[in-house]
Structures are given as C-alpha cells and as structure tokens.
Simulated assay, not measured.
Amino acid sequence: MKKIAVVGAGISGLSMANYLEKHQIDYHIYERRKKEDLAGHGFLIPKEGMDYLYQIIDSDLLHRHGSFLKKYTQYSHTGKILAEKELDNVFAITRHSLIDLLAQNISPEKIIYEETVIPDDQQNGKLKLSDGTYIDADIAVISDGSRSRIRKHFFKDESMKVVQESEVVNIIQNKEIADSIEHDFMKFHHEEGGLTFGILKLSDDTILWYSQFDNKKYTINECSAENLRKYMLEVFENWHPLVPEIIQKSKYKNVHLWNVYELENLNPFYHENFVFIGDAAHPLIPFTSQGVTSALKDSFSLTKYLVEEDNIQAAFSKYESERKPEIEVHISNGRILLNQFLLPLNQQTENIIPISYK
C-alpha cells in the first residue's frame, strides 16, 4: 500500500486526508503553521462543492455551522437595488468552521503542526523535515497554498503576478444586525467601480463580511488592526448605513487582509512523485468562489486514481487530464469577473453573480 505525505493542513490538504481515510490509505499531514488559525476568512460553496463535502462530513453537522443563501442582491453603494437573482443551494461558512469539520475525522497523531518540509536536492522524490530527517513516503501531495514554495522549487521559471484586487475579510457576531438582514448574499458596489462590500449571514447572530479594493486606487498596506479599522471607516463612510455600522461594530483581532496572486500560466500538476492540489496547483482569483469546490474535486479525483491505478504516474496523468480543463475555465471566468469589478457600474454587465460555473 502506498504511503502518502500531505504537505499543508488547509482545506485541500484536509480534504485529501478525508478521502484517503475513506479508502484506508496510509498518510501523514505536515503543516508549517500553528494549529489555531482563526483569521476571519470564509467561503461560498456552490451546490457541486456541497455534494463532495457530504461524502466526508455529515450533512446535518455541516448545515449547523453555516447557512444556505437564498438569493444574491447587488446594490449601489447607497443601497439602490441593481439586480437580484435566486441562488441554488449556495452555502456560506467560515474557514475556521470548515477546517474544524474536516479535521474531526483525522487522528491527531496523523498531523504535525509547526513543521516545514522541503524537497531534498540530493535524493529525488524525497521530502525532509527541518531537522534533516527524511519522510518515509511514496507520494507527496502538495497543498501548501497559492504561493507554494515546493511548486516554486520544481518550476523555477514560473511567473506569479499580483492581481489588481485586495480583500479585507472579517466576522462579526451581532444579533441585532443579523436580525435586520435576511439569509441572503448582499453586495454593495461603488458607482465608479473597483470597490465593493459583501455581506453573508451565517447564523442568527453571525455575519461574514468582506470588502474588495482595486489596489491601484486604494492602497492598503499591512497595518495594525486599529489602523485598518480606521481606514475602512473612512473609505466606506458615505455608504448605505449598514456598511459603516458593520465596520464600526466589528472586532479586528482576526481580520484578514488578503493580497491576491495568480500564475501567469499553469504548471504541470505533478512532478516525479510530487502532485499538487488546490491553490498549490492552480491559484484561483477569489471572484470565482470556486476555491473550496476545486480543492474538494482535486482531492476526490486524485484519490480515485490512486486507488484505481498501480502506476503512480498513470494516476497523476489521469488526475491532471480530468481537472485541468475545468480549472482553465475558472481561471478565464475569474479574469472576466475581475475586469468587470474594475469598471464603473454603468459599464458592467448586468446581474453578474460572483461565482464561476464551468
């Protein structure tokens, strides 16, 4: 039986571990961060992604940790309704909740935190720990994020660029505000383009909010939580009253400032006995809302072929052939949605849902 090292305990790495667990395949996870990562980051998961999650997380348990959004409403920054569209089982959940749910089926001894692993230049196909110890594994599944250091180790000529968009993401627990809105996806847009504020109700007292900035117009440097709060209040001062109220009443301990990167061109999804999944294989612009679903599908597909194929390279090749065409569609859609975001409202295509569908 193959031994697998999974590098990264984010959504893709933990999803992979869950699918491997189902098939009783030996694995171990290595994560360089601390176990508790409470950044205020969340996800929209379309119906297709939920179908994959149901295979590894009990549906009732999953539903208790998030919320189905009934419709998408697009507003001007002053609150005028621009467009409305019903949503088909789109689920909103915090990153922290989804990580906890994915980790519940993984034995603690199968995950090592605060451990950086690197490929060994002297022995091809081997990973080693920070102390120089080699990892005993036949396959390395790399899920260490969009700026994967292991991917860069193998594909030295790759080119990553900064996307013309940054995001601030946070969670607010406030029942009074939550009671004032429906279980919908609300998104406010500045008439000049390049600035939005999104609101997703997760439960009776919890709201996930995020703001998107054209980072050529709005410069957000890495700064303290208090300075970030002051900046947000200044930028969104004259918006619909709900927006500055949410900003004002939020706590900023776990606020997340996200600078977005993308690959100019996709690399191969595997090299020797290393295979890449999720953002490590294909960073997606957040406008697609397909990061979680793509990670789940990568993990499912790769596990399926590892079970079916005795030859590792054949399994990797089939995985790449299945997943790459769909990823290229999402990359294209993400760039279209980004270009729309940068335009003034009167030049944008009407009623665009910020979710990429293949």
Rank of each mutant, 00 (worst) to 15 (best):
residue 86 E to L: 14
residue 335 R to M: 11
residue 315 A to I: 05
residue 3 K to M: 10
residue 159 S to D: 11
residue 115 E to S: 13
residue 101 L to I: 04
residue 302 L to C: 05
residue 82 L to K: 08
residue 144 D to R: 10
residue 166 S to A: 15
residue 358 K to H: 13
residue 347 Q to H: 13
residue 255 V to M: 06
residue 13 G to F: 10
residue 21 E to W: 01
residue 12 S to P: 07
residue 153 H to W: 12
residue 25 I to E: 03
residue 170 N to D: 13
residue 80 K to W: 01
residue 353 I to M: 11
residue 162 V to R: 14
residue 112 I to F: 03
residue 112 I to A: 09
residue 158 E to L: 15
residue 178 A to N: 08
residue 204 D to P: 01
residue 128 K to P: 05
residue 294 S to M: 15
residue 164 Q to N: 06
residue 62 L to V: 05
residue 253 K to G: 09
residue 196 T to R: 04
residue 267 N to R: 11
residue 270 Y to V: 09
residue 291 G to Q: 05
residue 242 L to Y: 01
residue 211 S to Q: 10
residue 242 L to W: 07
residue 231 Y to P: 00
residue 283 P to S: 03
residue 288 T to S: 08
residue 98 L to H: 06
residue 55 Q to V: 14
residue 27 Y to A: 03
residue 287 F to N: 05
residue 102 L to P: 07
residue 65 H to T: 03
residue 316 F to T: 12
residue 327 I to E: 12
residue 119 P to W: 09
residue 249 K to R: 15
residue 241 P to L: 06
residue 121 D to L: 15
residue 335 R to F: 11
residue 186 M to F: 13
residue 178 A to V: 09
residue 70 K to N: 12
residue 342 L to K: 09
residue 209 W to K: 02
residue 234 E to T: 12
residue 238 N to S: 03
residue 283 P to D: 06
residue 16 M to I: 02
residue 105 N to A: 07
residue 78 T to F: 06
residue 278 G to I: 06
residue 354 P to I: 05
residue 61 L to F: 04
residue 334 G to T: 08
residue 154 F to Y: 06
residue 213 F to C: 02
residue 74 Q to F: 10
residue 1 M to A: 12
residue 314 A to M: 13
residue 233 L to A: 04
residue 135 I to R: 00
residue 246 I to L: 10
residue 81 I to R: 11
residue 341 F to S: 06
residue 219 T to V: 15
residue 173 Q to M: 05
residue 150 I to Y: 05
residue 122 Q to M: 11
residue 68 F to Y: 15
residue 289 S to A: 15
residue 197 F to T: 06
residue 261 Y to M: 06
residue 240 H to W: 02
residue 342 L to T: 08
residue 112 I to T: 15
residue 307 V to T: 09
residue 49 G to N: 14
residue 358 K to C: 12
residue 279 D to S: 09
residue 94 T to E: 09
residue 173 Q to P: 03
residue 135 I to A: 03
residue 241 P to S: 12
residue 108 P to F: 01
residue 179 D to A: 09
residue 160 M to H: 04
residue 212 Q to S: 15
residue 122 Q to W: 05
residue 308 E to P: 04
residue 44 L to E: 05
residue 20 L to S: 02
residue 106 I to C: 10
residue 127 L to A: 04
residue 154 F to I: 09
residue 295 A to W: 07
residue 13 G to W: 10
residue 216 K to V: 12
residue 93 I to F: 02
residue 352 I to M: 09
residue 313 Q to K: 14
residue 189 H to Q: 08
residue 200 L to W: 08
residue 266 L to Q: 09
residue 232 M to V: 04
residue 302 L to D: 03
residue 207 I to F: 02
residue 182 E to D: 14
residue 142 I to N: 02
residue 151 R to C: 01
residue 318 K to G: 04
residue 164 Q to D: 11
residue 213 F to G: 00
residue 143 S to P: 01
residue 40 G to A: 05
residue 219 T to N: 12
residue 26 D to H: 06
residue 322 E to F: 04
